[in-house]
Amino acid sequence: MPSVIVFIPGPLRPYCAGRAELPVDADTVGEALEVLEQSQPALYRNVCDETGAVRRHLNVFVNTDNVRDLDGVRTALRQGDVVTILPAVSGG
């Protein structure tokens, strides 16, 4: 199973003890999110809604590619990939 890094931008770090990078072993983006559901439940609740879908104000990227352009949460991961969870924010 590939080892990847989930990168957490600043606005989401309060939900994972301030950590910027979470190492995860997962074959797909969806599996990586399932790992977070167990290991970082507060973060997971901010990323996914009650149905398990990625919330609408967030985008998930594998390296720099949006998973919605790929296979969504079924997008396969390779060793060393960086999964970035990118929230839109509202301040201005």
């Binding site: 606005p11 901010n46 919330r55 104000h57 839109a88 924010v89 301040g91």
Partner: peptide
């Protein structure tokens, strides 16, 4: 296309809670 919808109220940090 990119941001499909706004987050539910109270979910995301704001300038109140995080500053800028």
């Amino acid at each position: 296309c990119v941001v499909e919808g706004a987050p539910p109220p109270g979910l995301t940090p704001t300038c109140d809670t995080s500053g800028v």
